[in-house]
Design a protein around this nucleic acid. Structure first.
Lengths: 378, 378
DNA sequence: CTGAAAGCGCTTACAG
DNA sequence: CTGAAAGCGCTTACAG
């Protein structure tokens, strides 16, 4: 029924009593009384029920009628009013994407890639995407439920979640279709799709150990994020397996930001000038580390190797270009959208999908070189 | 009426005939027949009209009734169904944000900052934000009109536009509220809010000329963008005023990407190894240039100065950190949202607002040093 | 295979 | 100041 032919057809048949209250205060574009189901029905000399069923490809309508009405709808440029459709029907055909309340959440390439995948898939599935931010008020006033109750959306995709987001528990009942994107929770039963952080971390550690590094620092982020814990666990295990015991002093919270990464690097260098490699839990922290090291005159990768995690567009263009773990964020977003829509449409199996990651070796890593401590003033 | 008290109140009064067809196939959360206006009216022993008017703060309702009904709505946890509200009313309270169909549009910090400003302001004004991408199909099938006709949105904010986007002309009539964000058009009468690109470019050129640079290259982007043309015009004028005539060979299209910026830089260096400064039309191209120069062993800023445009979060963390023009993108987005909503609510003055920009000097620029041509093999 | 009617949950003239 | 009623534009039992 959607057609590009925009042939203008007079909407009303003057021999029929005009509708009351036409177009003055209500509906759509100002003054432009648009074609309604009823108009089509009148023209086609069938009931509105029939037109509705044609619209919805109901097989009960004969091929002949279907075709005739279909054609008329196209000719008249009929566009179903989706408010009426949703009010009568079950679905809004809209999904919410919930972003964390970070200052630069929208400008963050990590979220951007996820959203990109979500939007593309949503479009293909006939869904619109609505943006929400998890501001304190949004959580406290339970607006994440309100958007369902007030019929804004059929489902919600939660990005940038962590263990302190207790409101997520409200979604575990399945009453309001929701899906956690690129994270997962053991404490709550929630659908999710995520990148394989564990395997990514293993690849990084294997690689660094192979290059001879043993004094490896970890820029992690708040341990209230399951995926971040997974990375830390692998880091500790692999070091232990290599006969190295790294205590807390080798790790620092870099808050997932450039500044945080730089600051964390500074703290670690103070404690451990003998560090030869830095493993950052995301690219932004790694870039912050690179930036600080460059200011300190520490040469990467000659003096210290740096590895990131995400493989954002940007990682290839810093100097030196960043060795990092590629995360299939676009795909995770796309899959999340797909699974959420299935859930909305009634599928009941819980979803827990993990997409594989791989290491991208660039110029910020090299064989361990010296055993001498760095001589930098911090 | 929105309240955090979630006291559960039995929805139906069993002494009153139950509504037909309750909750089975329709409306909101599965099975959870939610409280409707009618339920509130019944409980309050007033008409639905009265409850509706209380909801909309209609002054015709007495203070006493207003308070009583208000309190009841809170107690019953009433949430108006916004599909019904919009179907009966004039507005959807939703805005569309239209992004260009670039692969990484969502992951782009430039758009992200704009969207951030838009979303924050929209939330404050009681609007939801819906994401759309200007894919070929979206334009060809006039879906940018469909979202109005089908009552998805009340207005649209267009980002990343250019002169070839002829569909924008459809918005010049004012029938469908629209606003161009961070660009403007002389050929079409369109509302817009934008950064002051001209002043930004002037500041860059003044600064570079002051540093003694005369052989300045410009990484521009497609000249089909008004703001990009403004930058180019300033570049040419200022050079001319300094007695330098720069022909086309000093400019190159860097497509607003890192790769494009790197490639454009390469081409210009081939033609003009004597270049001492590169002025890039956005930060991404500047970063691409930095990356290439570093690979070529050209030292920035000693050998060549590089200036960007945008001041994305990221610009401070490349090495060397980027001198660039700060664009108030968050504010431009926020203002755009505000103005669009005014227009939706009936304001008719055309809007054309420009927010000022300023140069941020970092480490990628320095006094011109030598007159010797660079000796690099390209 | 098709139609007449009720319903979705609101808003707003129109009466009183 | 308040209520009864029509209407927004659809969908879906229920009849035939």
């Amino acid at each position: 029924m959607s057609s590009t032919s925009q042939t203008e057809i007079p909407a009303g048949d003057p021999t029929i009593a005009p509708r009351l209250n036409n177009g003055s205060r209500r509906g759509g574009a100002r003054g432009g009384k648009s074609v309604s189901l009823r108009d089509v029905a009148r023209m086609a000399k069938v009931s509105v029920a029939t037109v509705s069923m044609v619209l919805n490809d109901n097989p009960r309508i004969s091929r002949a009628t279907h075709l005739r009405v279909q054609r008329l709808m196209d000719r008249m440029g009929y566009q179903p009013n989706r408010l009426a459709q949703s009010l009568s029907g079950r679905y809004t055909q809209v999904l919410a994407v919930l972003l964390p309340a970070l200052r630069h959440a929208f400008a963050d390439a990590y979220f951007g890639e996820l959203i990109s995948g979500i939007c593309d898939r949503a479009g293909k599935l006939g869904y619109k995407v609505m943006l929400e931010q998890a501001k304190p008020e949004f959580i406290k006033e339970r607006k994440y439920i309100e958007i369902f109750e007030r019929r804004y959306v059929d489902g919600i995709l939660c990005l940038g979640t962590n263990d302190r987001h207790h409101y997520l528990e409200d979604f575990s009942g399945g009453k309001y279709p929701a899906l956690v994107v690129d994270n997962y929770f053991d404490q709550w039963k929630l659908d999710h799709t995520a990148c394989d952080y564990q395997s990514g971390a293993e690849q990084v550690m294997n690689y660094l150990l192979q290059l001879g590094h043993r004094r490896i620092a970890l820029l992690t982020a708040a341990s209230e994020i399951t995926t971040a814990r997974a990375v830390r666990d692998v880091y500790l295990q692999r070091l232990a397996a290599a006969g190295v015991t790294a205590d807390q002093s080798w790790m620092e919270d870099g808050k997932f930001t450039e500044d945080g990464g730089a600051e964390a690097t500074r703290l670690i260098l103070q404690r451990h000038p003998e560090v030869t490699a830095i493993f950052a839990g995301n690219d932004k922290m790694a870039i912050g580390a690179l930036h600080l090291l460059s200011r300190l005159g520490v040469e990467v990768p000659r003096d210290i190797s740096v590895v990131g995690f995400d493989d954002l567009q940007h990682a290839a263009f810093v100097t030196p270009s960043l060795t990092t773990v590629h995360l299939p964020l676009y795909q995770v977003g796309s899959l999340a959208c797909e699974r959420l829509v299935e859930r909305i449409r009634g599928k009941t199996e819980s979803v827990s999908e993990v997409l594989s990651t791989h290491l991208v070796v660039r110029d910020s890593t090299a064989m361990v070189r010296s055993n001498e401590k760095l001589d930098v003033s911090l």
